[in-house]
């Protein structure tokens, strides 16, 4: 594979795309939001279990491409157990990473989420990488129903 394709399809992304973690529905979620990308048909349902200001549990189900599925999977791993504030800070950092902008200093480190650094070279795939995160933000903002990338 050419090196730039490997920048996008890193092993971790291929792995999470094929075997997404936290891929299930929660029994009694505090909130559930549908995320939808009408351009490509990707569709995820995100469930959150909030405990005070903390995200006690998070899970998702749905169908999407390798990038959007891996992003949703890695997101659930990254924010499970974190506070709502930390989750928002992570999204800010993640978004900067995707757009190749300088990351803010504060907040938790990106860790494994760094594997999405290659996405900025593929502008048409930015929405794939951020679909789950936009869905998460809608859930944290108390929105219900379906959020769309468009």
């Amino acid at each position: 594979m050419s090196s730039d394709l490997r920048d996008l399809y890193q092993e971790v992304i291929l792995d999470h795309g094929k075997r997404p973690r936290n891929f299930r529905r929660l029994d009694q979620p505090s909130c559930s939001v549908d995320g939808y990308n009408p351009l490509c048909g990707d569709h995820f349902m995100l469930d959150l279990q909030l405990d005070g200001g903390r995200i006690a549990d998070i899970a998702f189900e749905g169908a999407g491409c390798a990038i959007s599925t891996a992003s949703a999977s890695l997101m659930t791993e990254a924010i499970k157990g974190r506070t709502v504030e930390e989750a928002r800070q992570l999204f800010k950092k993640f978004h900067r990473l995707i757009l190749c902008e300088a990351a803010p200093e504060d907040g938790p480190p990106l860790g494994k989420l760094e594997v999405f650094s290659g996405v900025h070279e593929y502008p048409t795939r930015v929405k794939c990488a951020t679909l789950a995160w936009h869905t998460l933000c809608a859930a944290l903002d108390g929105q219900h129903g379906t959020v769309s990338t468009e």
């Binding site: 394709l5 351009l39 048909g41 999407g64 491409c65 794939c128």
Partner: peptide, 29 residues
């Protein structure tokens, strides 16, 4: 097991332009 969107991106890097998605025909999909 491979989403059309990923097919499209990889083919593009090979110089091949195809369309991926629902082709504005969601009922057919």
């Amino acid at each position: 097991g491979i989403h059309p969107h990923d097919i499209g991106t990889i083919l593009d890097r090979e110089g091949i332009a195809i369309r991926t998605g629902h082709h504005c025909a969601q009922p057919v999909m």
